[in-house]
Simulated scan of single mutants.
Amino acid sequence: MDSVSHRAPGQAEAFATWVGEHVAAMARLVARLAPELERDDIVQESLTRAWLKRHQYDGRRGTPSVWLLAITADQVRKARARSRPHLSIVDDAPAGGGTPDDSLDLRRALAQLSERQRLAVDCVYFAGLSVAETAAVMGCAEGTVKSTLADARAKLRVLLEVAE
């Protein structure tokens, strides 16, 4: 038995149960925000951080999912800052139909968004969070999320040459 579990009998198991249903969403967010980084390591770092800060969780300020995704987004930012640029081999075949060029164009366009715009787009469109939940993850107001999404959509329209 590790020292943390020994000092807090039952707490580790309760925490594992509490976060268990959110781990997949955390992994998806890491994959969207930083596909070039090691997803499992960042999720593990996020869970460790959540364990250490578990006493700070306040259900009145958001759901466990939002709290954990905010921690995950922060850990991605830290991991990106620590990582050195390296080449990544990616399968460019689209997952849901379309041509490989469509998928590649979208990836390139998304990569040209600012980090803040990518986070907003990933949270709302890929992680399925509401604007309020995205605001909690990003640590900003809902209006800021809406504005950031509008700017991101406008930029994507130009980059992808999509008519309104």
Rank of each mutant, 00 (worst) to 15 (best):
M1F: 07
D2A: 08
S3Y: 08
V4Y: 15
V4G: 10
S5N: 13
R7M: 08
R7G: 11
A8M: 08
G10D: 01
G10N: 04
G10Y: 01
Q11I: 07
A12Y: 03
A14C: 05
A16I: 06
W18A: 13
W18P: 08
V19A: 10
V23G: 04
V23R: 08
A24N: 10
R28L: 12
L29G: 08
L29T: 04
L29C: 11
V30Y: 05
A31C: 14
A31G: 15
R32L: 15
A34Y: 14
E38F: 13
R39V: 13
R39I: 13
D40N: 11
D40L: 09
D41R: 09
I42M: 09
V43R: 02
Q44K: 09
E45Q: 10
E45G: 02
L47M: 11
A50T: 01
L52N: 07
R54K: 08
H55W: 10
Q56S: 07
Y57N: 03
Y57P: 03
Y57S: 00
D58S: 04
R60A: 12
G62F: 02
P64Q: 01
S65L: 10
S65I: 00
S65G: 09
V66L: 00
W67D: 00
L68Y: 01
L68P: 00
L69W: 00
L69M: 02
A70H: 01
A70M: 02
I71K: 00
D74V: 02
Q75V: 03
A81S: 15
R82L: 15
S83T: 14
R84L: 12
P85G: 15
H86N: 11
L87I: 12
L87D: 15
L87W: 15
L87S: 12
S88D: 09
I89S: 04
V90C: 01
D92S: 10
A93G: 09
P94M: 10
A95R: 15
A95L: 14
G96T: 12
G96N: 14
G97C: 09
G98T: 05
T99E: 13
P100M: 05
P100K: 06
L104D: 06
D105K: 13
D105T: 10
R108N: 13
L110M: 15
A111G: 15
Q112N: 15
Q112E: 15
L113K: 03
S114Q: 11
R116Y: 06
R118N: 07
L119F: 04
L119I: 04
A120L: 06
V124R: 08
F126N: 07
A127R: 04
E133D: 14
A135F: 03
A136T: 08
A136W: 00
C140L: 05
C140R: 05
C140Q: 04
A141K: 11
G143V: 04
G143L: 01
S147F: 09
T148R: 03
L149W: 03
L149D: 03
A150H: 09
A152C: 06
A154H: 11
R157F: 11
L160K: 14
E161P: 07
E161Q: 15
A163L: 12
A163S: 14
A163I: 14
